[in-house]
Write a protein that binds this DNA or RNA. Structure first.
Lengths: 154, 154
DNA sequence: TTTCATGTAACTTTAAATAGTGCATGAAAC
DNA sequence: GTTTCATGCACTATTTAAAGTTACATGAAA
């Protein structure tokens, strides 16, 4: 399958939204993400249902952050987009009658579960406010360089 | 893409080979795995290059284990099949000029690297001998049940 | 020399994410 | 009120990598 980049993408979008006072349309966000507006609406739909963002129709409409960034963790965002599978590998069959396969699956699953638990625990410790702070630190560092650039894409 | 089940599959095949004294053909192994002989030859090719299995052509040929099971870890097998990516998720772009994306990617990558390291460390602690022992324990448990079955697939 | 089995290079199929189209809905501007 | 702008959503198309398949060369044993 294709590599899943939804979490990466939606975090990116959220931080861009946080830099704006006014609502951003899915078209603006799609441009910044070099993707399609419908993809933006689709992934942000989950965040809206979870109460993290708000969407408005019509003139002046678009997307806004609905909660303080410090109150949203990467784990929250992961949950809101539907908890896509984290591991690229899986077992050959789900219901193995073969005892060899059962032994193999048990060993693999133990490892996968541990790795997933660690990953989700880490994500639960990082708030969007921290990501935004990291971004601003990078901004400050870059502004010292000879050719400062905008923080938003073209 | 499809879910990667190569590690699961090749471990399964190795344990079946270990139960046999004589070489097993890729056709026999494919039957047990409900897959295609060429798929078996493809994945076992990496293990052959790594010295874990041996293959022989012609009459009476086939595949045999070339090292004691206690000397092969799940990590070794993972390496031998080419270290396929473990995480289903990744970053949107590899070379982000956007500072927001840099901040997001840095946070995600930290988590992914930690989870991968944990997983590989766990895999490095489990030898095929232990998997085989687990299989035999399951065999013994089943043989107590009213309808004992063969350990090998039809 | 025939038969069996691997080795490998194509090509096809499949699963899942992403991309895109079309239209309904609803809000603001005129 | 009607035009314009924006989301909501159903549906289809594209893309990516694994898995499945075909075809044939190679090499060993019968």
């Amino acid at each position: 399958m294709k590599r899943d980049s939804r979490l990466s993408g939606v975090l990116h979008v959220l931080l861009h939204m946080a830099e704006q006072d006014t609502p951003m349309t899915s078209e603006q966000l799609a441009k910044a993400m070099q993707t399609h507006p419908v993809v933006i609406r689709r992934t942000l739909g989950g965040l809206r249902d979870a109460g993290f963002v708000h969407s408005e129709k019509g003139h002046g409409g678009g997307w806004t952050i609905a909660k303080p960034l410090a109150g949203i963790t990467m784990r929250d965002v992961y949950d809101a987009i539907g908890r896509p599978s984290l591991m690229a590998m899986g077992n050959r069959t789900d219901a193995p009658g073969c005892l060899v396969e059962q032994a193999v699956n048990a060993a693999l699953d133990t490892g996968f579960r541990e790795a997933e638990a660690l990953l989700l625990a880490r994500f639960g410790q990082v708030t969007l406010a921290e990501l935004a702070a990291d971004f601003h630190a990078r901004m400050a560092a870059r502004s010292l360089s000879p050719t400062p650039q905008e923080h938003i894409h073209d």
